[in-house]
Computed example of a mutant assay.
Amino acid sequence: MRKTKRTPAGTLLSEMILDLFRLNNRLLSAADRLVAELGLTSARWQILGTIATARQPQPVAWLARDVGAHRQNVQRIVNELAEEGIVAFEPNPHHRRAALVVLTDKGLRAFEDAMRLQVPWVNNLADGLQVEDLDATQKVITEVLRKLEGDGE
């Protein structure tokens, strides 16, 4: 069996990916704690944010694409949110069976409350970090994501 060797960039990126996995898990746990008092989880908050920031109402499949999640998982969360009156379904003029998901007033309040909690939290996390470093990191993450999305993943 022939051994393959990572390039220096491949080695650094591999190490960064492992750190990103750990960071993702920590972020999800921290976000769960941050919004628990609002009756939200990080997953619910992510869906609310995707709905709130979309240019127009979208069906579940599009929401799933935007968050990089499986449609079935997003559908389950959206259904739970609908049962609680946080989101509602509207007819989709382009597809009879794929209803559009919209925030209700209750959902908008929940999202805004979550964002009010997020501001001091994220500012605290950013304390001591350099804007230039954050910008460079964001560019690397965006480029890797673009490449992965180009592969159909």
Rank of each mutant, 00 (worst) to 15 (best):
L134K: 10
V102L: 12
L100S: 10
N92C: 06
R2C: 01
L27E: 08
G107A: 05
R44E: 15
N79K: 14
K3N: 07
A88F: 02
F89N: 00
R97T: 13
G150V: 04
V119Q: 11
R44A: 11
Q46Y: 03
V67H: 10
R22V: 05
L117A: 08
V67D: 02
L103V: 01
A52K: 10
K3S: 08
V140F: 08
A98C: 00
L81S: 12
L81Y: 10
E143C: 02
N24K: 14
T7S: 15
E83C: 00
A110G: 07
G150S: 11
A69Y: 00
K5D: 04
R116Q: 08
R2M: 04
M115E: 14
K139W: 01
A43S: 03
W45G: 04
E143D: 13
E90A: 06
N79P: 00
E84T: 08
P57R: 03
G39C: 08
D127M: 06
H95R: 11
K139H: 09
N25K: 15
A43Q: 09
P120M: 01
T4W: 13
P8E: 15
L34Y: 02
I77Q: 08
L34T: 00
D151K: 13
S14V: 08
I17R: 06
M1V: 11
T142L: 08
G10M: 01
N24F: 13
L103R: 07
K139G: 05
R26W: 03
H94W: 11
R44D: 13
V144C: 03
V87C: 13
D113A: 15
A36P: 00
A110Q: 12
